[in-house]
Nucleic acid binder design. Structure first.
Lengths: 176, 176
DNA sequence: GGAGTGGGAGAACGATCGTTCTCCCGCATC
DNA sequence: GATGCGGGAGAACGATCGTTCTCCCACTCC
């Protein structure tokens, strides 16, 4: 097992545990046990828990954004509506538990890593990119409210319905 | 200082600290220091941290719902739109940091107290009550997405704008 | 006034946390 | 084959947490 594989295993374990149980509720030793990476190596690759948390969120941000981009690009639907179809599938995953970045911000507050804010800015920028060129500049803001709202509602009552409700509203916004 | 005043002081301190810093980040001794209530009395009134957390969320639920109800009842606007005006004022409070119930759920996961789920069910029921009688039964679900979405967006970029954007969308839904 | 009681201040306890250190084994080098 | 050395397993350390205990003082009741 080289360092690269150890990093992957550590981030896999961190993602699974931090996302499911929250960040403060998971100790470093639990991540060592779940990843199989010895503590000494863990601290060589990530010198403190905070850097592991940041790395977890940064990788999740890249993967989340890439998955959404790919799904929107290959959908036959208008991009903005394809977002909600992708959300419906995400909300149906068995271990879905809301937005990892919002959860981290709620738990850590001002101590949350910068990537939390970056993630939300990226999402806003994607929605701006996908909105019809003729639309009002407020449309991206409104769509962002719909995406965040569907995610927050689904966090407490999982399943595709919140995404479908949000999609209905988005269709209305586009037809306006 | 009788027990009732001690309870109030404890819940005030708990609300201020738990909401601002997160639940796990605040120790019982910090609540003792902020409230001025001795530890012995604290544990007589709330036998464990979990019961203090539950009491904090339950009181906040009652106050939040009462404030929203009162504001909607005295507004000249249609009830559903008055909700978003109330949100805009809430988001502008200097210590606003998102929905305390969603934050608690994100931090505690399955270990979150039941009141988190109850709070969201109440909100849905209020929106159903305030929706025009002629509206589609899906309207309350869509409004819930808008309310939660505005709150989530405002958590990371505070101020009244997310509520205004959500209100614009709600107007469109009502005019449909 | 003396005995009992309740509560306040804060030390103490056991558990757990993030982090570091010790010990030891396998392996590469001359 | 002796010698270093990187790394693994896990003990150990200091801090902090939730919770309980000790000590002591003020006050009540006869």
């Amino acid at each position: 097992m080289d360092d690269e594989e150890a990093r992957t295993r550590l981030l896999d374990a961190a993602e699974e545990l931090f996302y499911r149980h929250g960040i403060q509720a998971v100790g470093m030793d639990r991540i060592r046990a779940a990843s199989g990476v010895p503590l000494k190596r863990l601290y060589r690759l990530y010198p403190a828990k905070e850097s592991l948390v940041t790395a977890y969120l940064e990788r999740r941000d890249r993967q989340w954004t890439a998955s959404l981009r790919a799904s929107v690009a290959t959908s036959a639907q208008p991009p903005v509506l394809a977002v909600f179809d992708w959300l419906a599938r995400w909300f149906s995953e068995p271990d879905f538990r809301g937005c990892a970045f919002l959860n981290a911000y709620g738990e850590l507050g001002a101590a949350a890593p910068e990537v939390v804010r970056v993630h939300k800015a990226e999402l806003h920028s994607l929605l701006t990119e996908w909105a019809p060129a003729t639309a009002s500049p407020a449309l991206a803001d409104q769509l962002l409210v719909l995406v965040e709202g569907a995610t927050a509602v689904a966090a407490l009552s999982p399943g595709p319905e919140p995404a479908r409700r949000a999609r209905e509203v988005a269709e209305l916004l586009l037809a306006k």
